[in-house]
């Protein structure tokens, strides 16, 4: 096997491994968030100690997920990184603008319910997904 083939294999293996790691830690973070959200009510009847432990678990797993995300970006090649960066920039902009407007909407009585952070998370997730798909289509 030539050196370039070995390098390519190493690069592809690293990318696959980091993608798998990111998927696993994202799933774990989701589970720990579910535990934090529903555990106090359904599992330990709002016991402060257990709630604090669940919170620490959630933050810890979240930190590892962020680290996995950074490793994933580092493992990408430069075009994939550009697509990711463009999508992240659009997501940041949309998130900021919509969060401001959404927060004000209740105050000025355009909506009758309290703004929910989960709506913003869904919007940002979808924006990022569309950004990545559009970037991949652009550089196809």
């Amino acid at each position: 096997m030539s050196k370039s083939e070995q390098n390519a294999e190493v690069w592809q293996t690293t990318l696959k491994r980091s993608t798998l790691s990111l998927g696993l830690w994202s799933g774990s973070w989701l589970l720990s968030t579910a535990l934090l959200a529903f555990g106090p009510r359904f599992l330990w009847q709002f016991d402060t100690l257990y709630s604090l432990l669940a919170l620490m678990l959630n933050l810890g797993v979240g930190a590892v997920m962020i680290r996995a995300n950074i490793r994933q970006v580092q493992a990408m090649d430069e075009l994939a990184r550009k697509i990711f960066l463009d999508a992240a920039a659009i997501t940041l902009g949309v998130g900021l603008v919509c969060a401001c407007s959404y927060g004000i909407m209740e105050d000025i009585r355009l909506i009758s319910f309290e703004p929910d952070i989960s709506h913003l998370m869904i919007l940002m997730g979808l924006t990022f997904l569309v950004g990545v798909l559009a970037g991949n289509r652009r550089y196809r």
């Binding site: 370039s4 090649d77 430069e78 075009l79 991949n136 652009r138 196809r140």
Partner: peptide, 18 residues
């Protein structure tokens, strides 16, 4: 493979998109 990038990257460079 020789450059350690994706085929998509090579295509984007060749077509002048990147």
């Amino acid at each position: 493979q020789a450059l350690g990038v994706s085929r998509q990257t090579i295509n984007a460079i060749e077509t002048g998109k990147f």
